[in-house]
Write a protein that binds this DNA or RNA. Structure first.
Lengths: 213, 213
DNA sequence: CGACTTTCGGCATCGTGTGACGAATATTGG
DNA sequence: CCAATATTCGTCACACGATGCCGAAAGTCG
């Protein structure tokens, strides 16, 4: 899961890797941006990295997997933040804080993140692969809610909260990705506040106004 | 979209179809239940129906599409119900009523519906294909909310409400599919009420109690 | 009958994803 | 220096989904 590359040479045995997941990720993202996701074949990505197609599938389980590695790390972070959340904070508020805490990207990461998000809506195969990774996100929330409310995570309300909070965050992500008129955290906060307010009429009036980022 | 089969013979010209979407649907559902989704090939389905694989793909655009035709019809119904909803009913309440109105299945349809739902969670490819059909559901809600709140359907709140209400309904469906201890409408109502209440602590206490159906 | 219309089958093709097996390239120990 | 071992890589083979093309099948209409 972590697989951190330490500074030391470490001198592992065996043939050294001729590429890395990160390199494949960068190459793939560039090719997807240039020619589109469906029009880019795995062979092309592998060729640019100087490896065979078979090697690509040793680094990622699917062509689409190349876009989700960072998302998966983010889910692990949310789990950790939720686990360390004080007990006296209400469930919905705890989720809101955890999501906002995790989504603090540096300015350098923003273009790549936006490129990823924009791609998802372009290809149906990509939108399809998303659900697999979203499941982990939802389960992180469901299990937290289950712990707090002392019921199984598969019960209706924990399950619903997991699904619903992810849905709200996805809406915020999408809205942010297609026009960058405000900070991502701003949209996430607005969407989650709307959920917490039960979509009352006071919330629905208008788009949240964002100071430019 | 509709393609209603009228009672009259109508005597259309050309070669008569040697099968129907419904027949393929029934055969596929049976094979999926017997051997699993991934283990069943399109060739097997086509062979049982006495047609070629090529013909199957003329009736459905994908192997998974065979499971979603009824869902797609349901989306059309929700659209119609929402369009006919009186203006003086609040947005969230209107959505709740529309969802409950559409989900009145006859007792005969229940086993097939449950079989479909259970299949979705078994195959990752199926869960993947779902997002494509869910999009139409979400858009039906988003556009309704957009009309009511006089803003584009792509704005944050209409988008969020579409995603969130679908998420709640999916949780209810899933909960219902895996143990049939209550009416489906009962779960849908409970999940949507929880959303409308903003997941307040009063809602979260316990599972909704269902009279046996 | 012949013209027309619609569905179907077979074929060929492309791309994803997976398994098997040996070759390549490194470290470790004799 | 050489063998043993470990790890990654490449090639081949294969199954399956999905799509385009074209001609054959099987009806109706005039």
């Amino acid at each position: 899961m972590s697989e951190v590359e330490l500074a030391g040479p470490a001198a592992r045995r065996g043939r050294p890797p001729s590429t890395s997941a990160r390199e494949l990720e960068v190459i793939a993202l560039r090719l997807f941006a240039e020619h589109g996701f469906d029009e880019t074949t795995v062979d092309q990505i592998a060729a640019e990295a100087g490896v065979s197609r078979r090697t690509f599938f040793r680094y990622f389980d699917a062509k689409s997997g190349v876009l989700w590695s960072e998302f998966d790390r983010e889910v692990a972070n949310i789990r950790a933040v939720l686990a360390a959340m004080p007990e006296d904070i209400a469930v919905m508020e705890a989720i809101r804080r955890a999501v906002l805490a995790v989504n603090h990207y540096g300015a350098d990461d923003v273009p790549e993140l936006r490129a990823r998000m924009n791609l998802i809506s372009t290809s149906s195969e990509l939108a399809a692969s998303a659900s697999q990774h979203y499941d982990a996100w939802e389960r992180a929330i469901s299990e937290f809610v289950g712990r707090r409310s002392r019921q199984p995570a598969q019960s209706l309300y924990p399950l619903t909260m997991g699904r619903v909070t992810l849905a709200a965050c996805r809406a915020a992500y999408e809205r942010w990705a297609e026009h960058a008129d405000a900070d991502l955290g701003h949209y996430l906060d607005a969407a989650l506040q709307a959920v917490a307010a039960g979509f009352g009429d006071g919330v629905l009036r208008r788009e949240p106004r964002g100071r430019r980022r």
